[in-house]
Design a protein around this nucleic acid. Structure first.
Lengths: 153, 153
DNA sequence: AACAAAATAGTATTAATTCCTATATAGTAA
DNA sequence: TTACTATATAGGAATTAATACTATTTTGTT
């Protein structure tokens, strides 16, 4: 990500905060920056470690709260998954996730057809739909190989 | 669910266990029965409470372990979601989930088109795909109304 | 009936997340 | 610029979820 892109995103983020009457604090900015600089869908703990390098006294609670706030104002997502710790994603572009159920790594992929999937009409009448995701789960190559190794012993 | 259906499912379950060389214990059977009797996608804790009514000395650990085992052998799913406690589903028929992000209720729905979604070929070459799910998130009607109420005060 | 591998109960431990409260700060309005 | 108020934060405590450990029990098999 180049400097211009970062500036754009930050500006966008400031606007979002203002619109929601959220104060722009150094902690919020650093959490946001740490998140969008991560491509590995970090946990709160991981973001915390990153932010600590800039703000040594930041608390884990603040990071947690802030990540949830980012999610609420639409500046980030909580990655969908089955169980395990919460993982966050600051990438707002259309994309989907594959998660390895063994090593828990999350891989982005993109399939145009999946972008346009809408909730069925029946559902849209009954509920307020906020997000539609195609979520794929399985084993990554290294984990698949390990799995086989163990089974053959 | 009528008696015949229950018997069918149990028989099926026994077969699955045998194939995987898993012993058929009262705890396993009761956990499985409690799960398929629940339509609310229960947590381990909720299943535990149900099983306790039949086996008062069962431990929460056993319920947890067993639910994860059911998931592994394909007799149950862990419901996809973003964060929150693990929720389980013993319904193996094609269906999708809507989750209210506020009250955490999970609603089943079914959309034929979603059943046939496959992982893109690129992904299938790179990873071992075990599950493809369409996951929808939002607010249920009561929670949507509450949300509005609070905001207007 | 006897055996070995697997499973369980009960508890301890770890890990994740939220709650609590005193203090500090950002945005606003004088 | 200064003062004010609502919001946010740090630090720690508390809560909750999930797993690990170990002695004992049980299943499926011989």
């Amino acid at each position: 990500m180049d400097l211009k892109e970062l500036e754009d995103k930050l500006k966008n983020f400031y606007n979002r905060c203002c619109q929601q009457h959220l104060k722009i604090t150094p902690q919020r900015v650093e959490v946001y920056k740490a998140l969008i600089a991560s491509s590995d869908h970090p946990s709160a703990e991981a973001v915390y470690e990153k932010v600590r390098q800039v703000l040594p006294n930041v608390s884990l609670d603040t990071v947690n709260r802030t990540l949830n706030t980012l999610n609420k104002i639409g500046a980030a997502f909580i990655v969908e998954g089955s169980g395990d710790v919460k993982r966050f994603d600051g990438n707002l572009e259309n994309h989907q996730h594959f998660k390895c159920i063994k090593c828990k790594k999350i891989f982005d992929f993109h399939c145009n057809e999946f972008d346009n999937i809408r909730a069925p009409e029946k559902l849209r009448h009954k509920f307020t739909v906020l997000r539609v995701a195609v979520y794929i789960e399985g084993l990554c190559q290294p984990c698949f190989e390990k799995e086989n190794k163990i089974k053959s012993n």
